[in-house]
Amino acid sequence: MTERKEKNSERVIELESRRLARGKNRELIIKTHIEIQRNNEIIADNINKLLHEYNIKSFDIVGAIGAGKTAILENISHRLAQKYKMLVICGDITTRIDADRIEKENVDTIQINTGRECALNAYYIEKIIKNIDLNKYNLIFIENVGNLICPAEFLLGMDKRVIVVSVTEGEWVIEKHPLLFKTSDIVIINKIDLVERLGTNVDKMLNDAKKINPNIEIILTSAKNKEGIGNLISAMQL
């Protein structure tokens, strides 16, 4: 079993919302849920294989609403739009606001509106991947729906998952949302320019991230001031 698959199995065991089901329904719900997770993982694996066949690098960007995912992607796009043929897939409950912002940096965007769903899943991404000309791209970013809970359940077949948190969310944000940090490769601590004013304990955030996931790489940024973006791009090996 690969390391990522082990992580996925762990995630299935850790999910607690199934406790809502009672009696006969409980067994059915758990069985169905595991089946859905497995299906998602199979699709995610297939997406990743397909992207590799086309030599496309790929990243899933997750984080809470307002953490700065879009601002980070605007900065990355600004720096890399000339170097790479980029596609950014934006996930939101509704609207095209984020996609419109990123598109101004001269990269292609596709918006997914999830309606009532709190995360993107591999099926949505597969629908896009199968309907575009993959020869047009060599770098794909997915900006997931903004929250720190649901996206943990669904891998999307990207090479790496990058999680964005900001100092405005408080120093407990990492400790309180371990699952998503466990399955991420890079954590960005954003809005670092506000640390002095807010008094957020960044050291605690750093320690919590390393405690939850010793292999996670940590980058400090201020998307607003364009600080740390170069370090992030290096960490992403782009």
Binding site: R96, I110, Q111, I112, N113, T114, G115, R116, E117
Partner: peptide, 17 residues
Amino acid sequence: QKNNINDYIGDFPSFIE
């Protein structure tokens, strides 16, 4: 070409552009 989904009656369906 792009989403044109401003006007519909329904309870938040999912749209892939």
